[in-house]
Computed example of a mutant assay.
Amino acid sequence: MLSALRLAAMALYFVPASLLNLLIVFLRPFNTDNSRWCGNVYGRPVLRLFGLTVHRELETLEATPHPYVIVANHQSNHDLFLHGTVVPRATVSIGKTSLKWMPLFGQIYWLAGSVLIDRGNASSAKQSMLQTTEVMQQQKTSIWVFAEGTRNHGKGLKPFKKGAFQMAISAGVPIVPVCASTYKRSMCLNRWRAGHIIVRSLPPIPTTGMSLDDMPALMDRCHAQMQQCIAELDARVAELDSAA
């Protein structure tokens, strides 16, 4: 019952939150700080409403100078609320072109400066990647990417797509892994205190001097580090939840 009430309240909140975010992006369209503002408007009230305690361990992310490519794990649509409170300044995300046509959210996502890629059109996708590389180099803007390309639904980190790593190598910028504990398995919205989530950034992985020949090893290194980190975070969350 509590879970249903929380989800209903979230749906109700989403409308005024979207209207506020729409105002923000209309007043300063394509500003590279829009994602951070909009993410917090969406995320912080919903995380409180859900009864979730979020621990943010982001020292390495905060200490890394722009630009860089953030690679994060993607569990569900609720990542909008969780990762929305983690997005740093001067950072935009990459998403599917189809997102642009979602009522309210799609227009906000576009005007927030997000890079929209048509995955069904290889030529168009490649051109978008090249433009993103130029944006990172010339505007000191960082990029947030869910490198799995789709939600993993809490069933473990999926294999990575190449795009994030191609961009990082082409621009000569580091990869900063950002890992969230597996909240899809641990949270319980039917409890007043629904659980703990830990989000941790890992030390940046440099790409200076790398070529595309180095990309498979870079992808494997990033994937292995994130997989190990998520396992550690899940163990800590289990301890926190059992002590509650």
Score class of each variant (00 low, 15 high):
Pro67Val: 13
Arg36Asn: 11
Met215Gln: 09
Leu240Asn: 07
Pro29Trp: 06
Trp101Arg: 12
Ser186Pro: 04
Tyr183His: 14
Glu59Asn: 11
Tyr13Gly: 11
Ala90Glu: 13
Val199Gln: 07
Pro177Gly: 05
Ile70Arg: 11
Glu239Asn: 13
Asp234Trp: 06
Lys158Phe: 02
Glu59Ser: 11
Met1Tyr: 14
Met136Pro: 09
Gln75Arg: 10
Leu23Cys: 08
Arg44Val: 15
Ala164Gly: 02
Pro67Arg: 13
Gly95Leu: 04
Leu19Ile: 07
Met129Thr: 13
Leu12Thr: 10
Thr208Gln: 13
Gly51Val: 01
Val92Gly: 04
Pro206Met: 04
Asp213Trp: 03
Thr208Pro: 07
Ser201Arg: 14
Asn21Leu: 05
Gly95Arg: 10
Val86Pro: 05
Met215Gly: 04
Phe165Asp: 01
Val115Arg: 14
Thr207Asn: 03
Leu212Ile: 10
Arg221Leu: 02
Val145Pro: 00
Arg36Cys: 08
Leu47Ile: 15
Arg236Cys: 07
Arg221Cys: 04
Tyr42Thr: 03
Leu5Cys: 09
Ala8Tyr: 11
Glu232Ala: 07
Glu134Ser: 13
Leu240Gly: 11
Pro177Ala: 03
Tyr42Ile: 01
Val176Met: 05
Ala231Asn: 15
Met10Val: 08
Leu19Pro: 05
Glu134Trp: 09
Asp214Tyr: 06
Gln166Glu: 12
Gly149Cys: 05
Ser114Gln: 08
Leu99Ile: 12
Gln127Phe: 12
Gln75Tyr: 04
Val115Asn: 07
Ser181Leu: 07
Val135Lys: 15
Ala8Lys: 13
Ile205Leu: 07
Leu12Ser: 10
Ala9Leu: 04
His55Ile: 15
Lys155Trp: 08
Leu52Val: 15
Tyr42Trp: 02
Asn40Ile: 14
Asp234Leu: 03
Leu189Glu: 08
His153Lys: 12
Pro45Leu: 01
Gln166Asn: 12
Pro174Cys: 02
Asp79Val: 00
His66Phe: 05
Glu57Trp: 07
Met1Cys: 11
Thr208Met: 09
Pro203Gly: 06
Thr132Lys: 08
Thr207Glu: 03
Met226Gln: 01
Ala168Glu: 00
Val41Arg: 05
Ala224Leu: 04
Ala90Thr: 15
Leu240Pro: 00
Val46Gly: 01
Trp144Met: 01
His196Val: 04
Met187Ser: 14
Lys162Glu: 12
Phe30Gly: 09
Thr91Leu: 03
Leu5Pro: 08
Cys188Tyr: 12
Ile108Leu: 01
Val92Asp: 00
Gly43Asp: 00
His153Ala: 09
Thr60Lys: 14
Asp33Asn: 02
Leu99Met: 08
Pro88Cys: 03
Thr97Met: 08
Leu116Lys: 07
Lys155Gly: 03
Arg36Asp: 07
Val176Gly: 02
Gln139Lys: 15
Gly51Asp: 00
Ala243Glu: 15
Met10Trp: 11
Ala244Lys: 10
Leu20Ala: 07
Val173Glu: 00
Gln227Met: 10
Pro203Lys: 09
Arg36Pro: 06
Gln137Asn: 10
Gly172Ser: 00
Val199Lys: 11
Lys158Thr: 01
Gly106Trp: 02
Ile230Cys: 01
Val25Glu: 00
Thr141Gly: 10
